[in-house]
Amino acid sequence: MTASSPQSPKPRPPLPYNMREVVLPGDAACPGCPIPMAWKVLSAVFGEKMILVIPACCSSVVVGAYPGNSLKASVVHVAFASAAAVASGIAEALRKRGITDVQVIAWAGDGGTADIGMASLSGAAERNHDIIYIMYDNEAYMNTGIQRSSSTPYGAWTTTTPIIGKTEHKKDVAKIMIAHGVPYVATASVAYPHDLYAKLQRAKKIRGFKFIHIHAPCPVGWRFDPKYTVRIGKLAVETGLWILYEYYDGKIHLSGPSRPYIDPKKRKPIVEYLKLQGRFKKITEDKIKEIEKYVEQHWEWIKRHM
């Protein structure tokens, strides 16, 4: 390994929340699922005072079956392409009724965001409704059994890219949202709950449309041992593949966990990230080089906008 490891950060205090009061035990998530991990951070910030609008995605199942519900917050299940539109309607109704202490959150996967939900997301962002749109990105259609989405990374195996792997790069939705000129865009990772917590706290204080893109490693779909969800999430950041940042006031603010990796020498080799995941089992040297090139281009873009 040529890259030097960054200094290990000092231990962080536990998040100030009673997560089990909102994220109840007994959900229907797979072992190692990143979804409840992120929900616990949401609950730390909003408690019961959030309305989650969930289109068709893994989370539609994870909350559990009627009459049960594993979240002690309000949940509205909606049609696949409609999370941002329904959230717009709820937010405007609450505004009309003078209710200001409840956060409307569209909570959608990468398919519901980057693909089928893109038009309604774009519409809601342009209208600047006072909502937080969270894309939890497990990089494929996991709920239907691991089919390619536009957010699947280059080279990854899925059941609809079964032999060759995906031949296109990942669609960068955060960049698309920045282009909408919304007041707040951030990337985050379930492996960095403090960072996600801080971002949700900032988003909570900003009026208008907020977009947060959460990297969410999926043991089932990415083919890794469920105990490695956090490790893989961290490796994505430490290799520089997934860059944590916030965008507000017209520029990118690199987040703490990603700051060291602006220096390519400090990044771990991308293969460290890839080799833990069965979906990259058949990846070739050429393809790894292509991913490295993509990562470098992405960093250049980040640096230009800081």
Partner: peptide, 16 residues
């Protein structure tokens, strides 16, 4: 931006 969103947002407003 579309009729799909028109009724989706109407639905959202109504449930709220």
């Amino acid at each position: 931006e579309s009729e799909h969103s028109a009724l989706a947002a109407t639905f959202g407003a109504a449930i709220a």
